[in-house]
């Protein structure tokens, strides 16, 4: 049936090879502190956080068929939740992460409840509206968030660059693993079913709106975890973290990586963050032109993204 071909590239590779590749990549990444200096390690940690958030968006866009243009709101919710917890409650990074995830779930329930009633392009614009309203709320709640100048007085995590990198890598690996398991489990299959044929799912007795809301909650929670990492890395968060430009960036990572997969957007996320740093260092203001050209070239040369394969005849 369709479910088996939907996952494109991943489905073709045997489960064992996939697990081996995953483990090898993890070992390689875990060894990075022995190869990279402090700055590049910090950059890579940021890239991994963005990669995880891109994967969470791929879950929503590719697997759930819900194209969001407001995903950065979850980044912001996670980052502010973690930052405020660090400032007022505890220096424990794990607890901060849990609070961020809880905040992501809550925000997903609140906004997703409404958002999942729209479809396609209208979903895209509705989530854009949620994102922009969230930016305004963050900017204007000066007493809590520090306003547009950001939440600056977050205490340091106390972790050195290497330890923080390992912490970030662990969070990204677990978060990614959760996404994969959920996608391949029964809930993931019903989410895919709701994407492919809503009427049929409803006829089979599924609560389609609820299934779609579940997709939003999963993606939102994982993205909030990524947001917490972004905050913990810099111990800073500002309303610019939630802006439409960041949502667009995440969506671009998904498209570049291939929206039928989760690993593709993860890799594209890391790659794009690193590429931006390299090109803007080397080329100054021309980095933006390079990025624009890259998008155009990728659309033609990688029609299904870096790692996506044709979704076999799924109309």
């Amino acid at each position: 049936m369709r479910e088996s071909v939907m996952r494109g590239g991943d489905a073709r590779m045997s489960r064992l090879t996939r697990r081996l590749a995953f483990a090898a990549a993890l070992v390689l990444l875990a060894a990075m502190p022995y190869m990279l200096d402090a700055y590049r390690l910090d950059l890579l940690a940021g890239g991994l956080a963005y990669g995880l958030m891109a994967a969470s968006l791929a879950f929503l866009v590719g697997h759930g068929g819900l194209p969001s243009l407001g995903h950065a709101a979850f980044l912001g919710v996670g980052a502010y939740a973690a930052g405020l917890t660090a400032k007022h409650v505890t220096p424990n990074v794990a607890l901060q992460l849990l609070v961020a995830i809880a905040a992501g779930v809550l925000f997903a329930l609140l906004t997703g409840w409404f958002a999942v009633r729209t479809r396609g392009f209208f979903f895209l614009m509705f989530t854009l509206a949620i994102g922009e309203i969230a930016v305004q709320a963050a900017t204007r709640s000066t007493r809590v968030t520090g306003g547009d100048n950001g939440l600056a007085d977050i205490p340091p995590t106390g972790l050195d660059v290497v330890t923080f990198y390992w912490w970030a890598l662990a969070v990204v690996a677990v978060g990614f693993g959760v996404l994969v398991l959920l996608r391949d489990g029964p809930l993931g299959r019903s989410i895919a079913g709701a994407r492919e044929n809503e009427a049929r799912m409803a006829a089979l007795g599924y609560h389609v709106t609820g299934v779609r809301l579940a997709a939003v909650v999963i993606a939102g929670a994982v993205c909030a975890a990524g947001g917490a990492l972004v905050e913990q890395k810099d111990t800073f968060v500002a309303p610019t973290h939630l802006e439409i430009g960041v949502s667009v960036l995440l969506l671009i990572m998904v498209l570049l990586g291939g929206r039928q997969t989760l690993i593709g957007p993860l890799i594209a996320g890391v790659g794009l963050i690193v590429l931006r740093s390299v090109t803007s260092t080397a080329l100054g203001e021309l980095w933006l032109l390079v990025e624009g050209a890259l998008f155009v070239i990728c659309v033609y040369l990688l029609p299904n993204g870096l790692l996506g394969r044709r979704r076999a005849q799924a109309a």
Partner: peptide, 11 residues
């Protein structure tokens, strides 16, 4: 590996 080697060379 490719991505990481880029990050290793950058700058």
């Amino acid at each position: 590996l490719l991505v990481l080697s880029v990050s290793a060379c950058g700058g």
